[in-house]
Amino acid sequence: TPPATSSSLPPYFMKGSIIQLANGELKKVEDLKTEDFIQSAEVSSDLKIDSSTVERIEGSQNPSFAIIQFAVGEHRAQVSVEVLVEYPFFVFGQGWSSCCPEQTTQLFNLPCIKLSVGDVCISLTLKNLK
């Protein structure tokens, strides 16, 4: 399966962006905590949080991109995504992390640290995906 590709940078990672949680609370993107995602998913009827462990990070043919391989969920299903190196993922208990945190911070002003193999990222799946 070819990796999923995200070629554009969404605006909501910009520092100061207002994010609405599932309970209606508004928070700035840089203030989000692990619990915010977990609690939002708990009240969602169709989405659930999965733990996605970074298993491998490699360069893409295009140097602007990286290919990240995750082990998703309790069955550790292998999923690869190709993303811009500055694309941030939220790591459990740690916060925003990307392959190139300097670029993420430069582009979005978003505090960000280096995404590493072994990091456990927050991801979503459908509750009824079986």
Binding site: P10, S17, I18, Q20, L26, D50, V72, S123, L129
Partner: peptide, 25 residues
Amino acid sequence: NVEPRSVPVFHWHSLVPFLAPSQSE
């Protein structure tokens, strides 16, 4: 008078990647 400008509000799940393993069964 200054008109208040609407600030975009994004939904929380937009920020989380949807990593669904392909279901073959």
